[in-house]
């Protein structure tokens, strides 16, 4: 299997390629600096690529990571934002917090009612502080006319 540095270098070269293509239709002054950066990035990535073949990588990237823990957490964060876009800050936050409090609880002692009510309290308190204290109206979501 490829080691993490090889993969990083290949990904970086691909990203450089995409950015280079994007900078082709810019004006001369607008494209100058980005092109300099991309050239440097490509050069460094090639060095990393060569290094990755010479040096053995001591540790795989995700050593000791529990897929059963991390994947739901990432999924949870992504769905949190998705739900927020639809129904706004308050509902999505209560949902996210309640589910996560429970999911991450290793002791297994946390009850549903406790986790939901704590999530509710945190969300409402922060919403209030931001709305009235800092005059930041948090998003209300597409369904409610945001």
């Amino acid at each position: 299997m490829l080691n993490k540095d090889t993969i990083s270098a290949i990904v970086l070269l691909a990203v450089s390629g995409i950015f280079w293509r994007q900078s082709s239709n810019l004006t001369e002054l607008g494209a100058f600096f980005p092109k300099v950066i991309i050239v440097v990035l490509v050069a460094l990535s090639i060095i990393l690529l060569i290094q990755s073949f010479i040096k053995e990588d001591p540790q795989p990237a995700f050593a000791g990571v529990e897929a059963r823990k991390i994947l739901p957490a990432i999924l949870g964060i992504i769905s949190y934002i998705g739900i927020m876009l639809a129904v706004g800050f308050v509902i999505s936050s209560i949902l996210f917090l309640a589910v996560m409090f429970k999911f991450l609880d290793n002791s297994g002692k946390l009850g549903y009612i406790k986790s939901v009510s704590f999530a509710f309290a945190v969300t409402v308190a922060f919403y209030g502080v931001f709305y009235y204290g800092f005059k930041v109206p948090l998003p209300v979501g597409i369904l409610f006319g945001g």
Binding site: S93, F96, M100, N106, F118, T123, F126, F134
Partner: peptide, 18 residues
């Protein structure tokens, strides 16, 4: 951690929006 981690995410969302 089961309280702290989700609440930090919650704060990051508020912060990046604000």
């Amino acid at each position: 951690a089961n309280y702290l981690a989700p609440m930090i995410v919650f704060m990051t969302v508020i912060g990046s929006y604000a």
